[in-house]
Amino acid sequence: MKFFLKQIALYGFFIFILLNLVALGSFWSLRKSTFYKPSFAVNQDIANLDYIVLGSSTGLTTLNTVQIDSLTNWKGLNLSMDDTGLPSHYLMLKHFLVSGGHINKCVLAITPWDLANSNPSLGNNDHRFLPFIFNKEVKNHFRDLPTSGASPLFFSAFIPLYGLGYYNTELFYPSLIAFAKPEYRNRFDEKGNYVYPNLGKSLSVNAIKQSEYSFNNPYLEKIKLLCKEHKIKLILYQSPMLNQHQVSLKSMDLINHSALLAQDTNLFYDEIHVNKKGRKIATKSFVDAILKR
């Protein structure tokens, strides 16, 4: 019996160490690359930027930082990640600043449903921060976010294998690509942008629906405070939507382009995302609005 337990313990320990080394190797490979946004955000010259764009898929696909830079002579990056919410945007900003990033302006692309969410939780792509789990800001962020059961993200700070196993297809295999090609980016350009093609779902034009924002998400305040702390001007931006007009009764500094493209289905990929043509117009309008301020 003792021999069996000794063997199991030794064997288990060996496997545990081996797999944790694999996990650490994967994290290292991703950290050194530009594969995902959290690595992309820190593995380039970020000390002399003018602005960054934060947001989910609407921020990622609407504001083209290449176009903004050419129209303004500013220098910026799009650090939006699809399928995320305000907690992830907050973490991205913090991560960027802790890693030595410097900006004057932060454009935050908001969505009504995210602002209304009073119980924010993990974003679907938050695992992209996992290679940086040993950084205090990332670890603490995942500790504070509510999860059901033991969060693979937070506990990866103690057992890296846990997070790697849980998100194996999202982390291990990309880490192999990142190791072979550190400059490879996961579906975004050299400035962090992604665009939907002009052909999308068949869309229909309906009467414009007017909706009001609800401000319930506590992470908006956190982002505001962080920007204030670092003397960064926070610009809230609402991207164009099809058949929808968002209004706010609360006085707030917001570039609200929800109804900008009105009901032109040629400019949309789906109800909430513009396509390539729409992005061009939306970005131009954004620059005009920001320069007027």
Binding site: Y11, L18, L164
Partner: peptide
């Protein structure tokens, strides 16, 4: 055996559909 079991465990961790 020990070696094939190690290989299978590595496969479980790196290919398992845990999520």
């Amino acid at each position: 055996n020990k070696f094939s079991a190690t290989f299978i465990i590595v496969c479980i961790v790196l290919m398992g559909a845990f999520k």
